[in-house]
């Protein structure tokens, strides 16, 4: 059964789809059946602009394992990058 459990967070930034860049203000994060990935369940992130109606999105569907690896790499990149620019 698909759930409606969604973690939402406000974000500041931009995302690029197939055609052009768009401003984004919200990330919808959920673990559910994917649309495209050949897996039963995936960690899905939809980057959207709620201010623009929320129907355009940049979406990813990741295996649970690769999503956790991505979290670690994001943390590592932030730590090393912020340290480098603080110097």
């Amino acid at each position: 059964m698909c759930t409606y459990i969604t973690e939402k967070t406000k974000i500041v930034g931009s995302a690029k789809g197939p055609n052009e860049w768009m401003r984004i203000d919200t990330a919808n994060v959920y673990f559910d059946h994917p649309f495209h990935a050949p897996l039963d369940h995936t960690l899905n992130i939809d980057f959207v602009s709620d201010a623009e109606g929320g129907t355009q999105r940049v979406a990813v569907e990741l295996s649970a394992e690769s999503a956790r690896a991505l979290i670690r790499k994001i943390e590592a990149a932030l730590a090393s990058g912020e340290e480098a620019y603080a110097a």
Partner: peptide
């Protein structure tokens, strides 16, 4: 809204 059905479904889902 209008758009690809999977994008509309994602919006509906995010809205509960």
């Amino acid at each position: 809204g209008t758009g690809a059905p999977e994008d509309i479904a994602a919006k509906a889902r995010a809205d509960g």
